[in-house]
Simulated scan of single mutants.
Amino acid sequence: MKLMTPWWVTPCSVTPGQDANPRHWLTATPLTSGLASDGSGNDASMKSALWKSLRFGVAQCRAGEGRLAMGRRRRRFMIWEWLAVLSAGDGSCLYCFSRSQTMDHVIPFSDGGADELKNLLPICRPCNRTKGKKNPVVWHVAMDLCLRWSGTGSLLDGAALGDKSLRELYLLTHQQVLEALDELEEVQAEVNDPGRTAWFRRNFEAYGYPSARFGVPRARAQFDKRIREGRAKGYPTAEEELPELLKQLGIGS
């Protein structure tokens, strides 16, 4: 019996000049061990081989993460970028709804997440520490499936919520994750909005990078009213703001 190699045995990244076709990676993998090509393999050997393949894939991914992290450097974000992210979603942490304090890489930087606005969302520091190097799906599922047991938990029952089984609890958590992703995607779309991004850049780029004298908390407190006004007006373009600016300067009628 011959099986197609699953996706997880392939390396996590392709180096420059390497063939993107995964077939050359599959010539020797743990998947083939314990399986006979003449149809004599049994379920036990197949399962054993698949688990070996999965462990091999995880090891490959971790090795790839290390190489990736070594070749990348985190960049500094300007004050306008900090303000653009922290003020999104009404300025609240997307996970606990307290006031946001820092920016979260939704897909962790160490896992290959982009170091750009499109991968950043507002978060408080306690949630940022707890989330760590996990994406929101892994974080939510891990917490939910670990914290919902009453002391009599088993595969078939014992969850604190309705005495559910592990399967039922997973399906419930799966639905909750989808709902959470809807909220995250909505705020991410706000952060990524080109008109909004242009408004923040135009109004706050001159303040440069955060410093000891003028950091993000001070900038946020100083510009909070201005940001709320800009939001109420739909983050107007430069042309739309020009008449009001001329009026403030006493130019024109």
Rank of each mutant, 00 (worst) to 15 (best):
F200V: 00
C146G: 10
H140F: 14
Y209K: 06
S211L: 07
L246Y: 13
I123Q: 09
L181A: 04
K233T: 00
M4C: 01
R218S: 09
G34V: 09
F223S: 04
Q176N: 14
D163K: 15
L172S: 11
D43V: 03
E183Y: 12
D19M: 03
Y207G: 03
R74P: 00
C96D: 06
G252F: 03
P194V: 08
L83I: 00
E168M: 10
V106G: 11
L50M: 14
A114Y: 00
F77C: 02
G39E: 06
F214M: 07
W149T: 05
E190K: 05
C12M: 07
L83P: 08
D163N: 15
N128Q: 07
L121W: 08
A212V: 14
A232S: 12
F223Q: 11
A198G: 05
A44S: 11
R74S: 02
L246V: 05
L155Y: 15
K233C: 00
F77R: 15
R226M: 10
M143Q: 13
L68E: 10
W80T: 03
D38T: 15
S92G: 03
E241V: 06
R226C: 04
D19Y: 00
C124M: 07
G41S: 15
A49M: 09
A36Y: 10
A189M: 06
P194L: 02
M103L: 14
F200Q: 03
W199R: 01
A84H: 10
N135V: 02
R99S: 14
A114T: 00
S37M: 08
L121H: 10
S110E: 13
I227M: 05
D163W: 03
A159I: 08
I251Y: 02
A84N: 12
G113V: 08
H140M: 13
F200C: 01
E240F: 04
C96A: 07
K2I: 02
K2E: 06
F204Y: 13
D104Y: 03
D104W: 07
L169W: 13
D157R: 14
R220M: 15
P22Y: 05
F223R: 12
L68P: 05
I123K: 06
V14M: 01
V141Y: 11
A238Q: 01
T237F: 00
T15Y: 13
L86W: 10
Y95L: 06
K164I: 09
S13L: 05
